[in-house]
């Protein structure tokens, strides 16, 4: 008995490590995880890593903004240290993107579960609304929402919810439609469990397979979108650094000072590539299981 319990314990705690070990077998997944972890590290330790205040203007640097010993990546059009702004900018994107993606998942999962579990008119209303939101091109929907609400971190999150949740609703609805016919759901009904309990405790955990890969891809996608909003002048209001905004402020000066746009562009690309490679590694593992 004790042995069986021991074995069970080993099995359940081993699951996580086994998956981690599986991930190390995919070099692409490892490369992605390293890139993402690098930026997470930078974001957490930004106050210690950044050599200068990201919003401090050094007017002497305006004469020669190119990278030098004092400013390793040079300074921007307002004499601000680009390295410090990139380091602090990682915080902006690594807070806004996960929070926005998470909120979109909460909304998408709830509506997807309701629509797949109850079917009928609930499903019709939710699915129609999702279809209508999906018929807007994402970027146009972003522009409309930010134009209506004004640019701020909260409104960027609201916009991400509107753009991303319809797709999540579709995925969750599909899985729920399938799962609700299975025996374990019938058993839960016979036990007299409430509908909320069945949806959240019985069905939701079974959607995690497709959702884990999707969430990783979506994080990368949301990072792109936040960068794009910054680039279009619809992101966070200045002066706090965000990578897209840094490119927007300086790309008209590219012919003279390409470094000002180049470094933030490299930063955002490396983070998104990290998310995508990690998602690919995770997908490979989920196929093998």
């Amino acid at each position: 008995m004790a042995q069986a319990e021991q074995a069970l314990k080993v099995k359940s705690s081993g699951r996580f490590w086994r998956r981690l070990k599986l991930l190390t077998e995919s070099p692409i997944g490892v490369a992605g995880a390293m890139l993402v972890l690098f930026w997470v590290f930078v974001a957490i330790f930004a106050p210690w890593l950044a050599p200068y205040d990201p919003n401090a203007n050094n007017y002497e640097a305006l004469a020669d903004p190119l990278p030098n010993d004092m400013f390793l990546l040079g300074t921007d059009n307002q004499g601000r240290d680009i390295l410090s702004r990139i380091i602090w900018g990682s915080r902006t994107v690594l807070i806004v993107a996960p929070v926005a993606t998470f909120c979109a998942y909460v909304v998408g999962c709830i509506l997807g579960l309701l629509s797949g579990y109850y079917r009928g008119w609930v499903d019709s209303v939710i699915s129609r609304l999702a279809d209508i939101l999906l018929s807007f091109p994402a970027i146009v929907l972003y522009i409309l929402i930010i134009m209506r609400l004004g640019p701020s971190a909260i409104n960027v999150i609201v916009a991400v919810i509107f753009v991303a949740s319809p797709q999540i609703i579709r995925i969750v609805r599909g899985i729920t439609l399938e799962q609700r016919e299975l025996d374990y759901v019938t058993a839960a009904k016979m036990r007299g469990e409430s509908a909320i309990y069945i949806m959240l405790v019985e069905i939701l955990p079974n959607t995690r397979g497709p959702l884990i890969v999707d969430s990783c891809l979506r994080m990368g996608y949301t990072t792109i979108q936040i960068g794009v909003l910054g680039f279009l002048g619809l992101g966070l209001p200045p002066p706090d650094p965000d990578w897209g905004g840094m490119v927007q402020e300086t790309y008209s000066m590219m012919s003279t000072w390409p470094h000002m746009s180049l470094y933030p562009a490299i930063a955002i690309s490396s983070l998104v590539v990290g998310f995508s490679l990690l998602a690919d590694g995770l997908r490979e593992i989920s196929l093998r299981d």
Partner: peptide, 26 residues
């Protein structure tokens, strides 16, 4: 082909615009 397509799709358009402009324009 798979890895290359993951990488190119992951670079935001404004970033690849900056990269291409640096190479071919500047």
């Amino acid at each position: 082909i798979s890895v290359l397509s993951i990488v190119t799709t992951s670079v935001p358009e404004f970033a690849s615009g900056v990269f291409l402009a640096t190479i071919f324009v500047i």
